[in-house]
Structures are given as C-alpha cells and as structure tokens.
C-alpha cells in the first residue's frame, strides 16, 4: 500500500479525477440510458404510466448528466492526448456507433417531448429513444472492455502493418468486450430501476420498478460471473488484478456488501437506502476495473506516467477543474434539489 501511495503524483491525480467524472457519468448519465431500456421494456397494466414516469424523471436532468461524458473526453485529451488519439484510432467503429446512439437518444427524446408526433409519431420517437438508449451503453461497455483486454494497445502498434480487421475490428469485437458491454447495460438498467422506484409516488408504479430492479440485479449478477470467466482469457491483466491483487478481496467485499444491501433494501422497500447501495455497487465495480489495470491507461503498453501531458498542462487543468467545480457543484446541488422527487 505504501508503494501505491508513493507512486501517486500529478498525472495519477488527474487520472483519478477523470475516473471520478466517468463515475459521475455512469451514475447519472448511465441511469438515464437505463431509463430508456425500461421504456423499451415497459409493459403490464401501467405501461403508459411507466413511460410517463421515466420521461418526467429524466427530462430536467438528462442534458446536465450527459455533459459528464464531455468532461471525461476533454479531460482525457488534455491530460493524456496520446490515449485519446489511440482510442479514437483503434476504436473508431464502436465510438462511431456510440455517437449515433447518443445523437438519436437525445434528439428523439426532445422531439417526442416537443410536438414531434406530427413527424414520425410520438411512439416512433419513443422507440428511437428507447432503442438508442439500449444500444449506447453496450458500446460504452465494449469500449471499456476493449481497453481492459489489452488488445487496443496491440492493435495500435500494428496500424499500417496488419489488416483492417486485425487493427480496427478484432480488438473490440471479441467475447470479453461484448460481455462488458452487456454487463454495463444491465448495470445501467439496474440503477435506473432503483432510481425510478424511489421517485415514483404511486405505490403500484413503485412496485413495478421495484420488481424490475430486483430482476435487473439478478441479471447483473449472472453477467458479472460471465464477464469474469471470459476475462481469464480475454483480459488477463485485469483478471489477474481483480482476482489476485492484495486489495482485491477488500474491494470484492465492498462490492458484495453493497449489492446485498441494495437487494435487501429493495426487498424491504427502503428505496433511499437502495439508491445509495446501488450507486455504491456500480462505483466499486468501476474503480475495481481501474485499480486492476493500474498503473496502465492502455494496458500493457501505456502507463499513466508515459501518457501524461507536460506538467504545466496538468497543473493548469487542475486549476481549471477547481474553478469549474466551484461553480458546478453548487449548481448541480441546486438542480437536483429543485427537481428532487420529494418536492413533487
């Protein structure tokens, strides 16, 4: 542990902040995508009410939540330009599909809200919103899985020497990245169901989302095991970190405790606690991946140190982040306070 602490410098701090921003995106933006999944899967006697609850819950906040992704991207290309350039080169195709999903999700949502029914039908836009919300998280997971697998680094070294498929397709169209993609989708859907259950005022509607959250928790569990099994051959470095490192047991205990707490809280209808536990569970999983591949950004080729921009950039970025956070944090608190479910 002391070795780990001694290795922390400016580049590691900035990298940690990028993961923190990604964590925020996953907890907030991820849940908005999960909302789209439940729109797609809406059913039963309260199908319409479910969709309306999803729409009214995410309408005031989804754009702010989405900006976390942009913060992650700009921080990444500022502090680790070579990482951004490498990912954008090798993962061009999944990034492109993810972007199409992001564009369609956002625009379909506003078109549905603002009179788009005349042009494509309200349900048409609803379907586009729901399908795009389902596809986009899978791609996000695929991209993270491809980085963790170590194949992005290998492909980047072979640009110009290997075939198109070897460089631009194989690194992400593989069992491990796809398993991570599905896992991410399940996690986002789980988060969304928990938040939606908390926010529902009608007890029957609340129970709909409670049952969905419990079902999603089961799917998360199954997909986590599959991803871990595939990781042994598909992402050896991360698999070793997650299973063998000294901190791994403690982290697994935390993740497991959060998961069990979330399920028990849902079972006993303590939705506020369920939200905290679910958010904790997802965050532990994210940080588990990050720690498993530390100190690499793109394992096994680029470490945080090797990829970092010059110190002057990192220092200025930190100053900028501090100034930005001073404006942002109170603003976000205000946003969520204004539209908190309890105020309804």
């Amino acid at each position: 542990m002391s070795g780990f602490l001694a290795s922390i410098g400016l580049p590691e701090i900035v990298a940690g902040l990028i993961v923190l921003a990604l964590n925020a995106y996953v907890l907030m933006g991820g849940a908005d995508f999960g909302g789209g999944v439940w729109d797609l899967l809406a059913g039963g006697p309260r199908r319409k009410e479910q969709r309306e609850h999803i729409a009214s819950s995410i309408a005031p906040i989804w754009e702010a939540n989405h900006v976390w992704l942009i913060i992650v991207v700009v921080m990444l290309f500022t502090a680790f330009p070579i990482v951004y350039a490498t990912l954008a080169t090798v993962l061009h195709i999944p990034l492109l599909v993810m972007l199409v999903g992001i564009v369609l999700r956002g625009s379909a949502f506003v078109f549905r809200s603002y009179g788009g029914e005349k042009y494509g039908g309200r349900r048409g836009w609803g379907l586009a919103f729901a399908v795009a919300s389902t596809v986009t998280p899978i791609l996000l997971g695929v991209i993270i899985g491809a980085v963790a697998s170590g194949d992005v680094a290998a492909a980047a070294a072979r640009v110009g020497h290997a075939s198109f498929v070897d460089v631009f397709v194989i690194p992400w169209l593989a069992p491990f990245p796809i398993a991570v993609g599905l896992f991410a989708l399940a996690l986002f859907a789980f988060l969304a169901a928990v938040y939606l259950a908390l926010g529902a005022t009608d007890p029957e509607l609340q129970n709909d989302f409670r049952r969905r959250a419990l079902g999603a928790a089961a799917v998360v569990f199954v997909l986590a095991i599959i991803a871990l099994l595939v990781a042994r051959s598909g992402a050896p470095i991360v698999a070793e970190g997650v299973t063998g490192a000294p901190w791994a047991i403690a982290l697994h205990l935390c993740t497991g405790a959060a998961a069990v707490t979330a399920i028990l809280a849902l079972w006993t209808r303590r939705y506020g606690l369920a939200r905290i536990a679910a958010a904790g569970q997802v965050s532990f999983i994210l940080w588990g991946w990050v720690l498993a591949q530390y100190p690499f950004v793109i394992p096994p080729a680029l470490t945080i140190r090797q990829a970092a921009a010059p110190p002057v950039t990192l220092e200025l970025l930190l100053i900028g982040l501090a100034a930005g956070a001073a404006i942002l944090i109170p603003s976000l608190r205000y946003l969520f306070k204004t539209f908190a479910p309890a105020a309804k």
Binding site: I71, F77, A79, T313, G320, G324
Partner: peptide, 16 residues
Amino acid sequence: GAIVGLPFSLEGFAFF
C-alpha cells in the same frame, strides 16, 4: 491536446 485541451475543458464547464 495538451494546449487546446484547456480551453476545451473550460468550455466543458461553461456548457455544463
């Protein structure tokens, strides 16, 4: 990136 990233980051916050 190490140069233009800063104004882009600030833009990110303004956009936020």
